[in-house]
Design a protein around this nucleic acid. Structure first.
Lengths: 136, 136
DNA sequence: TAAACTTTGCAATGGCATTGCACTCCTTAA
DNA sequence: TTAAGGAGTGCAATGCCATTGCAAAGTTTA
């Protein structure tokens, strides 16, 4: 397990510090998008700004992507290994309004519609709110 | 023009105060989604909290909908007259990353994909970022 | 081993949404 | 016509979250 995490970092040329390993492991285990506060709560003794900067480093190296789910707090979720956060990598996110958890629906790619004349798309953020399978 | 605005309010049983007429007119004229700060700047002498509460009233009566375009500030845009802000009323929004303006693409309804088993959709927020026709 | 760089923790700061409270305005009923 | 009640408004907080400056701690390199 530890190897897998370290490999993920190596793949993106990010030095494996203790904090980074922890955050990455956490994101892998939870299998959903987490906010800064949620992450902070899971660690107890780690500083929020350190986690913030860890996540920033991760973003810059395509390890995680940010999700704006309208909850007020930005959520962070793991990217696939071959992700470069392009329009093609964007996928739908799902916010359960009951448990407040946000999931990546990686198997549900975003279909970009034809836009009005002169409009060009670079990035898409598609969020669906509803009830997840656990809360049904 | 004034009649049109007053009618819109009457249609939703919202009392036409000066502030409400102004805000509604503004949203109609701009033909795009505006943030609280943008609205405040357009009026100069009106208080932000009044505008906020005006918009809240509008939301509650399906006159405007909120848009989370990831800019940090919530934007507000006019609803159609027959809107009840249901999943079917949701449409795509477009944020131009150059001029920072957000548009409703009312003619581009959101197609909700088939979700994983057990997931049920109640609301969708689909934002596309890119360059608008004016900035191309 | 010392210098240079990176990472971390703490303590701000700033932006935006939201609310409490008092004042004003408008409506209503005696 | 006037007093009372309710709605709307303005001002001044408050709170939450993202972000950053700075110094200490840790790591790498010559």
């Amino acid at each position: 397990m530890k190897d897998v995490i370290e490999n993920k970092l190596k793949l993106r040329s990010v030095k494996p510090t203790a904090m980074r390993l922890l955050v990455l492991q956490c994101l892998m285990e939870q299998n959903r998008a987490l906010s800064l506060n949620e992450l902070e709560a899971l660690f107890e003794n780690a500083d929020k700004s350190t986690i913030f900067r860890t996540l920033k480093t991760f973003q810059e190296n395509y390890l995680v992507h940010r999700i704006n789910d309208g909850s007020g707090a930005i959520k962070y979720a793991l990217c696939d290994d071959d992700c470069i956060c392009s329009l093609e990598d964007n996928h739908i996110h799902f916010l359960c309004t009951k448990c407040e958890k946000t999931y990546c629906l990686k198997d549900t790619p975003i279909t970009t519609p034809s836009l009005p004349n002169g409009f060009r798309a670079n990035f898409a953020n598609y969020l669906i709110e509803g009830i997840c399978s656990t809360c049904t």
